[in-house]
Simulated scan of single mutants.
Amino acid sequence: MTSPKRVDPNLPRLEPEPDDHPALPERDAVRRSFDRAADSYDEHAVLQREVCDRLLERLDLTTIEPRTILDLAAGTGQGSAALRQRYPKARVHPLDLSEAMLRRARQHGSWWRPLPPICADISRLPIADDSVDLIFSSLGLQWVDDLDRAFREIRRVLKPQGLFLFTTFGPDTLTELRQAWSAVDERTHVNVFADMHDIGDGLIRAGLAEPVMDAEHFTLTYETADALMRDIKRIGAHNVTADRPRGLTGPRKMARFRQAYEQFRTEDRLPATYEVVYGTVWKPK
């Protein structure tokens, strides 16, 4: 059985060619954002933990007994640790773009031994062809700047009849935040998220089979718009698009933004909607 290549986080990364589309996330900005947020992530990633747990529950609906598992965008290791517990005989490989997040994962215990975390990009996996039984990814695909390329990589490393199980954010995510900023200017202040149907089409284009997808909405509430934005920043999920405003936002614009967000206030709280897309897809024989 061929196993994924182990990559030292300190080694140089293989980087895909940059994509300068203004609505797509910038890879270096994504890495820097999560590196900075690594120490505060676990304290504030309430939604991310819930979504990961729900994705893990969907494994109850399969009969797969994987020997090799790849956890894409593993972050601080919640999914990897749970997968190791669920499949104790399997080799679980956590992979993330952020070295700081992987260091936090290693601090959470010895679940990852003897396999070191892999620091790499989802769009260019340092993994052998046809070597992974299960690829698990909870809320990682929204940080990829080329989903078609990422899906081709996922198909390449999956074994025939291997399973790809994932969640990502849909376009309704942070719709209130996006609308409030649209009253201020025409710049991209919120990350752009792919539609569920476009994701499904991309999976088919990559040669994956039988995609099953659905979505659900979560609503978090905050006392102020500033509290929401601080929460987003503390988990590294703030705006990383190429078209994002650079530098500090002036006080007048901030005042207009806060005022625009107030239209959504209900029962003295401001909502923040998240659309979570769930997907299951297989590699054909």
Results as ranks from 00 to 15, higher is better:
T62E: 14
T62Q: 07
A38N: 03
L83R: 07
W112M: 12
G75F: 04
H44T: 03
D42R: 07
E153D: 11
L147D: 06
D20P: 10
H44Y: 09
W112P: 08
R155C: 10
Q48I: 10
L139I: 02
A74M: 06
P117R: 02
R156H: 06
R86K: 14
S110P: 09
I154V: 15
R149A: 12
R67P: 01
D35Y: 09
A23I: 09
M101N: 04
R27P: 07
L134W: 10
V51Q: 13
V30A: 03
R58K: 08
A128H: 12
R84V: 02
D39A: 15
P114R: 11
A90R: 07
Y41T: 01
L83T: 03
P12G: 12
A81T: 10
G75R: 02
L70C: 00
V46G: 05
G79L: 07
Q107K: 15
W143D: 14
Q85M: 05
M101S: 05
I118S: 10
P88W: 06
R58M: 11
F151P: 03
R67S: 14
F151L: 07
P18E: 08
D130F: 01
D28N: 15
A120M: 03
L83Y: 10
F34P: 04
F34M: 09
D28I: 13
Y41M: 05
D19V: 09
D20I: 15
V144N: 02
D19A: 04
R49I: 04
R156F: 01
L95A: 05
I154H: 01
P116Q: 04
D145I: 00
P25Q: 06
R113N: 09
E57Q: 12
A150D: 08
P18V: 02
V51K: 10
L97P: 00
R84A: 15
C119R: 14
L134M: 10
P18Q: 12
R91N: 11
R113A: 12
C52A: 15
R104E: 14
T76Y: 13
P25D: 08
L56G: 06
L134K: 11
E43I: 03
L115M: 02
W111I: 03
E65K: 14
Q142D: 06
P117G: 08
R54S: 09
D148N: 13
S33N: 14
Q78P: 06
Q48M: 11
L125E: 04
T68Q: 12
D133T: 02
S123I: 01
I154L: 10
L14F: 09
R91P: 02
E99H: 12
I122Q: 12
I122F: 10
P114S: 09
I118M: 11
D60I: 01
R106W: 00
A150T: 04
G77W: 08
Y87E: 13
L14W: 06
L115R: 11
G109E: 05
E43W: 00
L83V: 12
R124Q: 13
A81E: 05
A23R: 14
V51M: 11
P116V: 08
T63M: 09
P88Y: 04
R36L: 13
E99W: 06
S138M: 02
I64Q: 11
S137W: 01
R84W: 03
H108Q: 15
R13H: 05
R156E: 05
Q48L: 13
D133V: 06
